[in-house]
Design a protein around this nucleic acid. Sequence first.
DNA 1: GTCATTCACTAGAACGTTCTAGGGGACGAG
DNA 2: CTCGTCCCCTAGAACGTTCTAGTGAATGAC
Lengths: 341, 341
Amino acid sequence: MQPTPAVPHGKRPTLADVAARAGVSTALASIVMRDAKGAGAATRERVLQAAREIGYRPDARARLLRSHRSHLLGVRFGLQHPFHSDLLEGIYAVAEPAGYQIALSAVAAGRGEQRATDTLLADRCEALILLGPQAPAARLAELAAQLPVVSVARRLRGAAPGVEVVRTADDEGARQAVDHLVALGHRDIAHIDGGRAPGAADRRRGYRTAMSRHGLADRVRVLPGGLTEEDGAAGARALLDAAPRPTAVLAFNDRSATGVLDTLLRARVPVPDGISVVGFDDSHLARLAHIDLTTVGQDIPRLAELAVGRAIARLEGERIPDGEAVVAPRLVVRGTTAGPV
Amino acid sequence: MQPTPAVPHGKRPTLADVAARAGVSTALASIVMRDAKGAGAATRERVLQAAREIGYRPDARARLLRSHRSHLLGVRFGLQHPFHSDLLEGIYAVAEPAGYQIALSAVAAGRGEQRATDTLLADRCEALILLGPQAPAARLAELAAQLPVVSVARRLRGAAPGVEVVRTADDEGARQAVDHLVALGHRDIAHIDGGRAPGAADRRRGYRTAMSRHGLADRVRVLPGGLTEEDGAAGARALLDAAPRPTAVLAFNDRSATGVLDTLLRARVPVPDGISVVGFDDSHLARLAHIDLTTVGQDIPRLAELAVGRAIARLEGERIPDGEAVVAPRLVVRGTTAGPV
DNA sequence: GTCATTCACTAGAACGTTCTAGGGGACGAG
DNA sequence: CTCGTCCCCTAGAACGTTCTAGTGAATGAC
């Protein structure tokens, strides 16, 4: 027999039940459950015992209702973004040890950002962490007037006062990729971009300036792309027809790079000996042995730490260094890059 | 100027504020906010106007604290499973129109199933929907003694009384794949399995019985695999060395199948003309034009609908048909299967 | 012996809602 | 005119917890 819950269904045990069973006041029971000081050792044990026996669980709602602080961080994320899942891992890892709970709200088909935000606000979150928000800056500013808001992985140049921004230095990442390729001896380096995706403009710019800095401004070739394998594949097909054919490609992200690799493979162009390929994100995909993609990694744990840190800092009234928190990316060299033949 | 929230920070407006501004009792304001009957049209408008002006938002916690029902379904999911994300899409789509809110809790590194469950219980969820739970059946049964529990995509043969089970007929899916390949003329059909992954045993069994039913028991070949691209790639390498080389492969899932495709491509074995490949899941991956994988699709919307439906049925006291809810999969024929040469 | 201090504990209010019970007024039926 | 109904509305309790303000006893300082 497992320890009988003693309360079959319907009404769950309350603090008053615990107190009654232990023969103390609810206030004291509360003290014990919160592990606050003000209770004797013997009584403490007696209360805990009583709680265990009747299977008591504190009611988070009542608890938050009464306490002034809720210690609850609302995180809004997109269900279809593996990158967001990775960030969430990091956010949990930082927030819970810091004494903050996480309330999740997903953006899904038929459940827009606004809707997802509303439930977080209704849940009395103290601050909002928005992963890759798409809403107009004005809307974010409006939110920020009500509570601390952190935008992760979306650039907002001054357009949304009060919103904390945490992001990767996308331009710097593109620069690192170009530098790496140039160091290997490449000169004809193309970029299949991410269109209007967040970060795409910065990566495009980083690619352009890096090329110029190497005196390769005339070799700049940007192909319109997007964030899926499909976009990468289409870009690669366009590249194969081009003359002169570039010897290296920087894709917008790993998914796109996978599409590039696939197209090259089908066209019997060896990688990296025929064409070098660089991705962006260092996703699980890139690490797979049979893909083994050279890519620009985002420092996800650091992004998560900064996001949570800024939110908490704002809540606890600390002054925060002005401006965005920009995290440096790091090139991960694997098997898809080599010198040109 | 945007509509000034009138409450800068700290204290958010309460129902009493709305009532005071509209010149009515809080009870009446509550009626209006809940859209319940018992308020005149003019007053209703006046209250709504007041609420709008001061930027009032109902406090979900206080609301749930008072009402006997919370109409809150707790959903536990794994951050690293795209399949769970897809299920969540479906769950939101069904639950919200039915008048139920969703509380999410993620299983992440350093945040086990137990911990994830605890927060849901503390939030006073009325029922739990667990996606791919790994906990021992006894633990699930223990939970089920406290509140309705639905396990999605994990088989529990009678070991956890009180737990509702919703899952795909994995054996049937494997059968459909084999039937399709046999109809195309294949006889040497291999299976790269999923090891200990949920569903793997059923798919293995389905493959075996289908082969037998076609009189191909002596052609059965099961290779040890897993759920990643890597596992599929390894299995494919083993197949290429085998004699006689099979003309078709059923992979455990799409990720595995992608690994198979990659290996075949590298080995210059044309697909489908050299070897046919079938996946499982019909993930986004499979649908990509340059992969175009024939695969067994799980009916995700249906799984979600059943999961939510069972949870709600249990809550509202309806009698539920005995046994598991098993959803039929459906073969999606794309470009990676054809007759043998 | 008196006073302050500390400690273990308690009564009761408070958090922001919803629910129960009921109070007036208007209206129609008899 | 009286009664019953219906409609709009309100007072006050309740939900399960934490917080504030204490109470009484024991301890220690002088």
